[in-house]
Every structure is written in structure tokens, then in C-alpha cells.
């Protein structure tokens, strides 16, 4: 697993959880109370994912190295 994936509630994590919820709901063994809770969580996740997809702007930064060898993230000159 790559390091950037460690961030919590990534798009991928939300989507995987949503898919798990859909699967549990499809099995009729869930009680109505559980189903209601799962449904609500699922809708919330779908909403979060959809909002993330709506993000209008791509963020582009530059990875540079300072004199001491440390990394610095810089903005990009806009063309």
C-alpha cells in the first residue's frame, strides 16, 4: 500500500464501504433497524463521493528541493 493511501476517508475507502453496504442490504438477513442505519450511511457516503467528484479545480504543485535537501512544495507559475 502506498503512503498517500493512509489518509482517512479517501475516495477509495468511501467507495469500498458504500459497496460493502450495498452488498449487506442485498442480503435479506439484515433487520429493518440495521437496514435503515446502513441505508443512511450509504446515502451519506454516496453524497461525500459525489461531492468529491464535483471538485472543480485540479491542484497542481511543484516538488522542489531546498538547499538542505528537504523537500518544498511550491506553487506553479501560471501560464
Amino acid at each position: 500500500m502506498s503512503p498517500a493511501k493512509a489518509r482517512k476517508q479517501s475516495f477509495e475507502a468511501s467507495l469500498k464501504r458504500l459497496e460493502a453496504i450495498v452488498e449487506s442490504l442485498e442480503q435479506s438477513s439484515v433487520s429493518l433497524d440495521d437496514a435503515t442505519a446502513l441505508y443512511e450511511e450509504g446515502i451519506q457516503l454516496a453524497k461525500e463521493c459525489a461531492e468529491k467528484l464535483k471538485a472543480a479545480e485540479l491542484k497542481v504543485k511543484k516538488l522542489a528541493k531546498a538547499m538542505d535537501g528537504q523537500f518544498v512544495i511550491e506553487g506553479l507559475k501560471e501560464e
Binding site: 467507495l15 442490504l25 442485498e26 437496514a35 450509504g42 454516496a46
Partner: peptide, 17 residues
């Protein structure tokens, strides 16, 4: 895909109800 997931959840709940 998200829409289909919501659709499936909806279907499952409808059936249960």
C-alpha cells in the same frame, strides 16, 4: 456507479418494506 449503488440500496429497502 454511485447512482447505481443508491438505486440498489433503494431496491433492497423497498423489498424489505
Amino acid at each position: 456507479l454511485l447512482r447505481n449503488n443508491c438505486y440498489t440500496m433503494q431496491g433492497s429497502l423497498e423489498e424489505m418494506l
